[in-house]
Simulated assay, not measured.
Amino acid sequence: MSTGTAIAVDPHVVTCTLAPRFEAVRTAREFARSTLHGWGLGALFDDVALVASELVTNALRHALEHRPDAPSAESVRILTESVRLPAQPGPAQAADAQLPIRISLVHRSPQVVCAVSDPSSRGPVAREPDFVAESGRGLHLVDSFSRAWGWHPLAGAGKVVWAVFEAENAEVEMAGRHRRSA
């Protein structure tokens, strides 16, 4: 069962609104999979899915931490260890009408941009890597798996955190597969 609603006006700009619930990370990954495969860029899925997971997890953990209906930090930590948690009934479901987190994928050859917006105006801060800690390496992963990343405040309130991926190699790889299978 999905917690997101996908919107597509331009077939190369697709957005999915995510509920502030456990399923948001899984929904973001499913959204990335179906969108990238639809664009013929399935080869990018692993990198984009990892970054999308990190950005959505950060939005759940940090941007929504002061909301009474948001998942607790401990719940989000458990979520990151096992993305297939069942739906949690309760106050979080009442927040569905607000749906404050959005993931967008934009394909402008030769690049794909993954952007996650949330209601917090506080920008992400990469911490010193602590290889013993259970968290704190997410932005380092985003940096490692994308060509570039950054963030911008949104008008009024909120922010968008984005990461850029090179699609050119994925497009060439997919074209080669199609030629070999024909």
Rank of each mutant, 00 (worst) to 15 (best):
G138P: 06
P153K: 11
R127I: 02
L55S: 01
V164K: 12
D118N: 14
L154M: 13
D118I: 04
A32W: 03
E30V: 11
A115H: 01
V132M: 12
G150Q: 08
A155C: 04
P124C: 00
R108S: 09
A73L: 14
R177V: 14
C114I: 13
L60S: 08
A92R: 10
Q88P: 04
V161T: 15
S34P: 00
L99E: 07
P129D: 04
E171L: 09
S104W: 00
S104R: 13
S117R: 08
R122Y: 02
K159T: 11
V56G: 10
I78P: 02
G138S: 12
L139M: 14
G90W: 09
H140D: 08
L99H: 09
M1Y: 01
H66Y: 05
A43W: 02
R102Q: 15
R179E: 13
E134P: 09
Q98D: 14
L64Y: 05
W39C: 01
V56F: 07
R122F: 05
A170V: 06
D46H: 01
P129V: 08
S120T: 14
L139F: 15
W149R: 10
P89W: 09
S82V: 13
P68I: 04
S146D: 05
C114D: 04
L79T: 01
A170P: 09
A32K: 01
V76D: 02
H178Y: 06
Q93R: 12
G123T: 08
E168P: 09
A157K: 10
G4V: 01
R84Y: 11
A175F: 07
M174G: 01
E128N: 08
G176Q: 12
H140I: 09
E65R: 14
H107S: 04
A133R: 15
R21M: 05
D46T: 10
T35I: 02
R137C: 04
F165P: 11
S34V: 10
F22T: 11
R102N: 13
E65G: 01
S181N: 12
H140F: 05
A70Q: 05
E128I: 07
H107E: 11
S144T: 11
G156E: 06
R108C: 01
R21Y: 00
M174A: 15
G123K: 03
A148M: 12
W149V: 03
E81S: 03
D143S: 12
A19V: 11
E134M: 00
S109T: 12
H152T: 14
A28D: 04
A115V: 13
T27Q: 10
L44F: 02
G150I: 08
I78Y: 09
I101M: 03
R33F: 04
V112G: 04
A126P: 14
G42Y: 03
H152S: 13
L36I: 08
D118S: 07
Q93K: 09
C16R: 15
L50P: 04
R180H: 06
A94W: 06
R137P: 02
L139C: 06
N58E: 14
E134A: 05
H66P: 00
V161Q: 02
